[in-house]
Design a binder for these strands. Sequence first.
DNA 1: CATTTGATGTTCT
DNA 2: GAACATCAAATGC
Length: 218
Amino acid sequence: MTENAAPTARRSRFGAPLPAAFFEPPTELVARALLGAVLECDTPEGRASGRVVETEAYLGAHDEACHAVVGHTPRTAPLFGAPGTAYVYLIYGMHWCFNAVTRPQGHPSAVLVRALEPLEGVALMRRRRPRARRDEDLTNGPAKLCAALGIGPEHNGRGLQRPPLVLRAGTPVDDAAVLVTPRIGITRAAELPLRFLLRDSPFVSRTPPHFVRKPYAA
DNA sequence: CATTTGATGTTCT
DNA sequence: GAACATCAAATGC
């Protein structure tokens, strides 16, 4: 019995888990590199996964928009942890959002995953998000994708290299397919171009009309 | 299409 | 007491 041992240990159809070293470089580079990766979440109800199509970089203790500006507190503790761990937080008292922690231990930075293209478990996602009318609305926002995949506080601080929550290597994304804009929904350091998205994906969140969209330059 | 508003509770000033 | 890395519904073009 070496295969199919348990539902939560099911093999993935996608790439290998991204190693901790993947998350160590400067956060804006990790945010760009995460486009095309696969985020996968196993729960007792089943597996749901999606391809990353939109991210934002939060650069650390000196980034006024990063939660770590307030220092090491119970809430921000996971941001100071090892690269490749999950930071899951509650926003507006009702929605969970998911980040992958970046940079070496003690450097509190992270990438917010803002949108996915659904891959596995679409029927499960529809049950979890009954108000989504179209498949494009299942995971096209940071709180929507957490609801659809079943990501919550139980995942906060966990490593992303093994189930239940895993980030896997995915299909490479060409620079020409990437657009950069300011980050969404923040008031401090709002002008910095740190949001990365796939130009032609119908699964990205809406870009405010006045935002500058520019091609990605490596 | 764009813009506004209400819901909800934790964190921080 | 205010702010908040949001969402969905409702209103105005």
